[in-house]
Each structure stands twice: as C-alpha cells, then as structure tokens.
Computed example of a mutant assay.
Amino acid sequence: MEFEEMKSLWTDMSQKVEKQQLLTDKLIIKMTEERYTNKFRKIYGLESLGAVTCLAGAFYILLNIQKLDTWYLLTCGIICLVLLLVLPMITLRSINRTKSLNISQRNVKETLVKFYRAKNELLFTQRLNMYLGILFALVILPVFSKIMNGKDLFIEENINDLWLFIPILLAFLFVMAAWVFRAYKNITTSAENILKELDT
C-alpha cells in the first residue's frame, strides 16, 4: 500500500469519526433538551389547570359584581379580579420562558446564563405569588360571603368564629405556598444539573 492510499484512507476514517462525533453530540443535546423540558411539563400542566380555575373564579365574580354594593366590597372584588387574571398569566409566562430554553441553538455558557435569568424570574414569581396569595385569601372571603350568602363580613355581628378561622387559613396557605416554592426550587435545581452535565 502506497503512502497516498494510506493518507486517503486515514482522511476518510478521520472524516467518518468526526461525523460520528457530530451525530453523537447532536443526539446528546437532543436528549438533554428533552430531559430538561420534561422537568417543567408537569408544573406547566398543573399551573394551566390552576389558570383555568382562576379564570372561572374571575368570571363568576364578574357576573355577580353588582352584588358587591359597598365601596370596600367592590374594592375587594376588583382586587380579586386583578389577582385572578394577572397572577396565572405571569406564572405561566415565567414557566414557559424557563421551559422553552433552546439548548441546541447556543453554547453551554450562554444556555446557563439564560437559564439563570429565567430561573430567578420563575422563583421571584413564585415568591410574589406566595405573598399575593395571602392577600387574595383575605379579600376573597368578604367577596364570596356577599355574593353567595348576601352577608357583609365587615358589619355582620355573628361572624366571630370566621375571624378566628382566618389565622388558621393564613397559616395553612403559608405552609402550602412554602411547599410549592420548595418544589419549584427542586425542579429548577434538577434542571440546572441537567444543563451542567453538558458542560462536562
């Protein structure tokens, strides 16, 4: 075998190895992207269901807004409407932004920078939801009491039991919100680890 033939064979083999490596890299990136996206699929579905529930609640309040016949009940009703309409949209947008990170279109460093921005936004949104959820619990009680029972909780005399129930409700909501926040934090940490695997 002459030197030129060996050189040609070596070049062919080298090109095949490079093509194989390129295909392997693309397959690894595709699998990583799929694993990453799957981390957010479940919470996106649950939050979408929650958004539909919030829209139904907002629609119900809107249909019965005329029953809120005092300025403070109307104010509570408007606050409820705003929270029911805005919070789910903000949450879904931040989850979608984090979930739809296009890993194959940029290098690992750029991907991690984009991820950290999206992760921080998502966790900030969840913290905001936690505190606004407590506000929501306080304003929804008088609204639904008036709409469903015709009772104004601010002037009713026989509601002492209800006011005792509010601290228990707030404590329960705080514990639930903290649990949800921890779940989001675990999911984003797991997604971060998937992305860091690409770096190695």
Rank of each mutant, 00 (worst) to 15 (best):
N107G: 15
T91Y: 02
M13K: 14
T32H: 15
L173F: 15
A177G: 08
L128K: 13
Y131E: 03
E157F: 12
E121A: 05
W71D: 01
L81C: 03
S190Q: 14
F165V: 15
I65W: 15
D69M: 05
N38Q: 14
V108H: 12
V139A: 02
P167S: 14
M89C: 06
E18W: 07
V113S: 04
A171D: 00
F40I: 05
N64K: 00
L84N: 03
M6P: 00
D69C: 09
G57P: 00
K42F: 12
Q126S: 11
V86M: 08
Q66A: 07
K30N: 09
C54Y: 15
I168Y: 11
M176A: 08
L170I: 12
A178T: 09
I134P: 00
L49Q: 09
M148D: 05
A171I: 14
S104P: 02
R182D: 03
Y36C: 06
D69A: 13
I95H: 05
G150N: 10
L9F: 08
Y131A: 02
A177W: 01
L92G: 04
I79N: 01
S104W: 01
T75Y: 00
G57C: 02
E197G: 03
Y44D: 05
K146I: 06
L9H: 09
V143W: 00
L169Y: 03
L49M: 15
L27K: 07
A58F: 04
L123Y: 14
L62S: 01
P167Q: 11
F174S: 09
L128V: 14
R35C: 04
